[in-house]
Design a protein around this nucleic acid. Structure first.
Length: 383
DNA sequence: AGGACCGGGATCTGCCATATTT
DNA sequence: AAATATGGCAGATCCCGGTCCT
């Protein structure tokens, strides 16, 4: 096994000499020291045979406007390759409507892209086009995340992924959303994706669910990020929810594929930290455990809110006399930014809005609707 | 008509560590 | 040993408006 590369190098060394291939290749392929020693010293370049960088490659990249320094730092190996396809890749992408700047940015951020053959790119592109209707969409995803497109060269795996996701019953629309939102999903190995689906199915079964596939599908289509999370992360979050909410199995199952689905992919530390601070804050305010549970159940996204943000939001609401009870009843108001909430509270106070009497739902509305409401409230009462 | 209820949209990559291949 | 492939991680909301309900 280990001898194979050496032999290959030896052969290509001879090829290079006898057929007069370019000098670069000679220098690059004679790297193994032992083999080089079989050649007389005078045949060797005077410099030690450390892989030099391909200079025409550097020139090309510079010409293309690639941030060579950044690229080099990212994937130095690419720069020592004897053959790269930067021209082909650039031409290909240009043909798909990517501008020079985008191409340069893509290569700067994921240099390995230039090791892909044009043929391979063509195939991969077609596979993506099964899901996207225009080239422009693909270009924009690529520009956003070059790594998602280029990290793996396994087109067969991509094909299998698409087939697998379809087999779960995900619609083409779901696939489109999935590839747009979390493109990395498609460069996961199918095995990894299958493991997650299997894991979700197991969770469902453990909780007494009768339709594990439907559950997995529901979770994926409602939380497009789930397949790019680790099983460990999702499992830990489910365990945390399980132990802190103490729901009946069937309720937990419904929660997980309903509104609770959004918090499954939160980082574990984050859930823990945010849960603790919410718990602490509410306990301090005299809330019961049941209130805390109710809040999380009706508005799971509360766990997304960091400690200080949550504190500010609650404080500015409480400061104008709104009670924790009211917030627990209408938690959606926490959805809005601190700035938005404080601004609206001021406006409402100006017109003498009575939160006790009229409730706080007014805070949960679009800017347009809110302004219309304020205008009505501040208009002189007419008969 | 007006408010409540509810779900969706934007966006979430870029880096590091380890495994695998060459 | 070097390069590539793959898995995993951290970070932590905000806003809009359709539709239903009264």
């Amino acid at each position: 096994m280990a001898a194979v590369p050496g032999v290959r190098a030896f052969l290509s060394l001879h090829r290079s000499v006898s057929f007069g291939l370019i000098q670069v290749q000679l220098r690059l392929t004679c790297h193994p020291v032992k083999l080089c020693s079989t050649v007389t010293e005078s045949d060797m370049p005077p410099k030690p045979p450390v892989n030099p960088e391909n200079e025409s490659l550097l020139d090309n990249l510079n010409l293309m406007g690639v941030d060579v320094k950044k690229a080099h730092q990212r994937q130095p190996g690419v720069f020592r390759k004897s053959f790269t396809n930067e021209q082909g890749v650039a031409q290909f992408l240009q043909g798909k409507g990517a501008c020079r700047k985008v191409i340069a940015s893509i290569i700067s951020r994921y240099p390995r892209a230039i090791t892909r053959s044009t043929d391979h790119l063509e195939k991969r592109w077609q596979l993506w086009r099964n899901i996207f209707t225009t080239d422009a969409e693909i270009v924009s995803i690529m520009d956003r995340s070059p790594e998602s497109f280029f990290r793996t060269s396994d087109n067969e795996n991509l094909e299998k992924n698409i087939a697998f996701l379809i087999s779960l019953g995900l619609s083409t629309k779901d696939l489109h959303r999935l590839l747009t939102t979390a493109p990395r999903t498609f460069s996961n190995s199918v095995e990894l994706n299958k493991q997650m689906v299997e894991f979700l199915g197991d969770v469902c079964t453990e909780l007494g669910g009768k339709n594990p596939e439907q559950f997995a599908k529901a979770v994926i289509s409602r939380n497009l990020y789930i397949l790019i999370r680790s099983i460990k992360r999702v499992r830990t979050n489910i365990d945390m929810l399980k132990s802190s909410l103490k729901l009946r199995d069937s309720d937990l199952l419904a929660f997980l594929q309903g509104s609770g689905v959004d918090i499954l992919d939160l980082s574990n530390e984050c859930v823990k930290k945010n849960f603790n601070s919410l718990n602490q804050k509410m306990t301090l305010l005299g809330c019961q455990k049941s209130d805390i549970k109710k809040l999380i159940m009706t508005y799971p996204m509360v766990l997304y809110i960091g400690t200080s943000t949550l504190s500010s939001k609650l404080d500015c609401l409480l400061n104008v006399g709104i009670t924790m009870d009211q917030i627990v009843e209408k938690p959606k108001v926490l959805d809005y930014s601190v700035q938005n909430i404080t601004g609206r509270l001021q406006e409402l106070q100006k017109v003498g809005y009575n939160f006790q009497k009229n409730g706080i739902n007014i805070l949960d509305s679009s800017r347009k609707r809110f302004d219309a409401k304020i205008e009505k409230l501040s208009a002189p009462p007419e008969e």
